[in-house]
Amino acid sequence: MAIELPENVVISKLDSLGSWCRKNSLWPMPFATACCGIELMATGASRHDLARFGAEVFRFSPRQCDLMIVAGRVAMKMLPVLQRIWQQMHEPKWCISMGACASTGGVFDTYAVVQGIDRFIPVDMYVPGCPPRPEQLIQAIIDLQDKIQAEGTIGGREFNTFARQQRKRALMELPIIRTPQIVLPNRQGTN
């Protein structure tokens, strides 16, 4: 069945249209704690100009945002705040972990720094570097846009799939450290 279409009409799936709209109007929530925050500011400022990718509308209110950029290390005292802000954001939402500290703890392997935010909240994109250059952050946003386009967001079913709820493998291997209680096996009973 052939339908004559005018030249300025494009046919698409509703799903990919929805994704296309979403990916080109990301509203980041800058959770800037440390040095990476300065590079985040530089990304938004004149030379690098994040507006070219439709993601320049920084909103500090989590209710208005759909992309959280965690820039900088997250300390023990800050993590409950981070989790609360993540919960306050509406679906669909994505998270970029910017820099080595947010992704793994970086050089700060100390008592007070969370060793990677992906232990406690879901992360979509990791940006390496200490701090990453603005170009790297822009690349991460472009990659995230591809991911959003591929996801298909109408209905939001993808957030309920089993695979996405799985914790990261690295997380499984690093258990929560508590004070060890050594229990010696009773040798005499076995013999």
Partner: peptide
């Protein structure tokens, strides 16, 4: 008191004692 010398650099596990949020429950 973490800067005392008998306190380890990596702490005693305080940095891991938080609930984990997943996609589904967020």
């Amino acid at each position: 008191h973490p800067l005392r010398k008998d306190y380890p650099l990596q702490g005693r596990g305080e940095r891991h004692n938080f609930p984990v949020l997943t996609r589904g429950e967020a």
